[in-house]
Amino acid sequence: MAQRQRINLKVNGVEYEGEVEPRKLLVDFLREDLELLGTHVGCEHGVCGACTILLNGKAVRSCLMLAVQADGAELTTIEGLAQGAQLHPIQEAFHEHHGLQCGFCTPGMLLTSHEFLQENPSPTREEAKKAISGVLCRCTGYKQVIDSVMAAAETMKNE
């Protein structure tokens, strides 16, 4: 059995310490060890985007990283987006524009949109479409998701 390793990382501004087997996927560490169940796990091979989190500010698939690789990193998961009861403008926009139905893809959609709008605060609809194309949604048909991203861009610009 491979040696368990000690890791230290910051998730949503909180320091955590854990001891993991090297093969533990980061998404499983978040869900099982830290009990942060907001990050969903769908395909486990990078295709669905449900497990997308921010690693040092960049969107990554947490099913394609090992927990040991997050040693020393700063992560943002969906739990870190709202400020207490105050939803993030992207969350507000998804709420307002029906950007979700069952909610399975939503954590990935929100964090993917978050990185996208940081890099491109005034996107065209076409760009928004492309940006969220890496997250699969079986419910909405994407139109409302794109509406939500465009609406969020509008609010965030005016803040």
């Binding site: 996927l25 486990e44 091979h45 990078g46 099913c63 394609l64 990283m65 090992l66 040991v68 690789q69």
Partner: peptide, 23 residues
């Protein structure tokens, strides 16, 4: 980056005994 190797390992199409992480 693990974007090809991790899917292979998650599906157990590959089972390396030692992973050398160059990140």
């Amino acid at each position: 980056g693990g974007q090809s190797l991790m899917p292979i390992m998650n599906f157990r199409l590959g089972r390396p005994g030692l992973l050398i992480d160059i990140n």
